[in-house]
């Protein structure tokens, strides 16, 4: 285990990370043996429902919470014994964007620059640059109390970037945001990542993990239940569904053709669905077979399994629609 931790160049590594709250019979194991290895320059998505242990894991990796078991290294430093070094290397935007509403955006950034001990001569330039980067130049001198949710999150992100960290932790960066603000934040996260920042983000949104993450880990009840590239994970769940809309008169013929490629799946009326055993590669063969049978296709759609299917497969319950 220790060799695993010391031999790696990965910016985030955790081995058997555990956190128990309370003791005795009432002890709750919020994080129960999490192993993680995040590669340099990747966006790693930590996906799970509320209370799954995402935030607790992030709090341990960012030195805010002491692990009760296992160990972790961030940016090459041990989170338990080298917490100061870890703090200097990471940027963190926590879940509720804890921003003092009585201060202005620019004041908060200035304070953050002082707290990280940046050279005083650079403060004004750095603050201006970050405000512009997150699109808050015009609002920089307004009190944060007047900001919208999206603006707060963007300021929170700017605060996390003040000392140009190489590793960025984002705990549910878009929870509660409207779709526009969410997409703006996604763009910013992608841009940061393109510039070489390693990002670990937690989310309860499948789409967010799907859109942003190079790899995801799905966590439930404090344990990682599944991990990998989103497309791999989805592929592992099973065949994608091919939906075909044909002339009502040709439905029966079409079903006969489709059964040759996989089992038929329930769909809306007027449409046929088949689980393609060969995956997306099988689509062309289906199209040729339908054409050979003289069937006119009105609509064709291949639906890959979603991360929700992955989640359901791994945990036995669905993430989406769950409160």
């Amino acid at each position: 285990m220790t060799t695993l931790l010391s031999d790696t160049s990965a910016p985030i590594v955790a081995v058997g990370l555990e956190r128990t709250f309370g003791s005795g019979e009432r002890a709750i194991r919020a994080v129960d043996g999490v192993d993680l290895s995040v590669e340099p320059g990747e966006i790693f998505g930590f996906l799970g429902p509320n209370g799954a242990g995402k935030s607790t894991t992030v709090r341990m990796l960012t030195t805010l919470l002491r692990p009760t078991g296992g160990s972790a290294k961030v940016a090459g430093f041990d989170v338990a014994t080298q917490s100061d070094e870890v703090r200097r290397s990471i940027g963190v935007a926590l879940q509720d964007a804890a921003i003092d509403p009585l201060m202005t955006g620019a004041e908060l950034l200035h304070l953050q620059a002082v707290l990280y001990g940046l050279p005083k001569a650079d403060h004004t330039a750095r603050v201006g640059e970050l405000l512009e980067r997150v699109g808050l130049s015009a609002a920089g001198d307004r009190r944060v109390g007047t900001y919208s949710g999206g603006m707060r999150r963007r300021l929170d992100l700017a605060l996390a970037l003040i000392h140009e960290p190489s590793v960025l932790f984002l705990d549910e960066p878009t929870t509660g945001l409207d779709p526009m603000s969410r997409m703006a934040l996604w763009d910013e996260i992608r841009r940061l990542n393109n510039d070489g920042t390693t990002v670990l983000l937690t989310t309860q949104y499948l789409e967010e993990a799907d859109q942003l993450a190079d790899r995801v880990a799905i966590i439930d009840h404090g344990r990682i239940v599944s991990r990998g590239r989103p497309d791999e994970l989805k592929a592992a769940v099973g065949a994608p569904t091919l939906f075909v809309a044909v002339d009502p008169a040709q439905v029966n013929t079409a079903s006969e053709v489709l059964t040759r490629f996989g089992e038929l799946r329930p769909t809306a009326e007027g449409t046929l669905g088949v689980g393609l055993a060969e995956g997306a590669a099988g689509v062309s063969a289906v199209v040729r077979a339908l054409d050979d049978a003289g069937i006119g296709v009105h609509h064709l759609e291949l639906n890959a399994p979603s991360l929700d299917d992955v989640f359901a497969d791994a945990t036995g319950h669905r993430l989406e629609g769950a409160s």
């Binding site: 960012t62 703090r87 509720d96 707290l115 990280y116 605060l159």
Partner: peptide, 20 residues
């Protein structure tokens, strides 16, 4: 209130002294 809102955590995340 700093503790409630998480501003305290934000300070703890910086390399500045805890007593600040």
């Amino acid at each position: 209130t700093d503790i409630e809102t998480g501003f305290f955590d934000r300070l703890l995340l910086t390399p500045s002294p805890r007593v600040g």
